[in-house]
Design a protein around this nucleic acid. Structure first.
Lengths: 148, 148
DNA sequence: TTTAAATACTTGTATTTTACAAATAAATTT
DNA sequence: AAATTTATTTGTAAAATACAAGTATTTAAA
């Protein structure tokens, strides 16, 4: 059996590259980190700064500055929570939602293409494997538990 | 079936985090990018700057500066190729090799732990699945082919 | 109910990372 | 021998990062 790490390293590098390449949507150009932020806000709208920053394992100050950038770019909005005025709730603008959707579509197009090289059985196995892995990683005690 | 992208995003985020967390080796502290560079030099010693930079999809000028840092840290050496004096061949110092090995060990320890949550059949399936995915991604025409 | 402590976020500042443009040096082609 | 290509470096400037300290709001304690 090959080195486990090597398999993972290759996979995540390729996927990271895909993330990078999917960041230019016509005129709008965002960084990989910014696309991750938009992805998370899209997935869980009305979450607080801290929640999203933690999900992405980003320093809150770095995150705060990135949000400022995304607001300037008119992709994200920030509004004080009614319950707790310290908390800022994040949401996507219409344009932000458009960017999120476009990125998601091009990523999924690529993934569909990748999976088209497999038969149905392989497809299922691979997807279930990744699910399994995700579960196993979240169970692990060694690393990343608090953050992931 | 869930969104494919979501599965991948989660997996690569976790693995990325693992990469980040495995970068401090006692006194020596390196960045994630630097650990990637060291990993590649370790895997294919005597490769040129350009080869490694391309593998990591890094801009050659950024790469050049990172190599300068790693040389200052006495983790990497650079020597002109005998065949072509323009080319710089990269290698790890003893300390660099030690760092590479230590990182590799802690990553593999973590992965072993993750896989310990599975039975033997699942383990095999998951590993074969990742291999399959890597192959499928390298076959793909849509993206990243020239770079990966 | 006033004060102290904790929480959520922002700003000051400094370092690191990144990458385009231009420069250098060696090899290859003309 | 001159012109072109290739591998790498440096000049420069922008972007990303993160620690320390600050502000504002909420919660806990006196």
């Amino acid at each position: 059996m090959e080195n486990k790490r090597e398999l993972f390293q290759l996979l995540t590098r390729r996927f990271g590259l895909l993330n990078k390449n999917c960041c230019s949507i016509g005129v709008v150009e965002i960084s990989t980190v910014q696309s991750h932020i938009i992805y998370e806000i899209d997935k869980q709208p009305e979450s607080s700064m801290q929640q999203v920053a933690e999900l992405l394992a980003m320093d809150i100050t770095t995150f705060s500055r990135q949000i400022q950038n995304l607001i300037k770019m008119e992709l994200v909005t920030k509004s004080a929570s009614a319950q707790d005025k310290r908390v800022s709730l994040l949401a996507l603008t219409v344009q932000g939602k458009f960017v999120a959707t476009t990125i998601d579509e091009s990523m999924n197009t690529y993934l569909e293409e990748v999976f088209s090289h497999m038969n149905e059985f392989e497809r299922d196995t691979v997807l279930r494997s990744i699910e399994l892995l995700n579960k196993a990683m979240s169970k692990s005690s060694v690393c990343c538990n608090t953050v992931c």
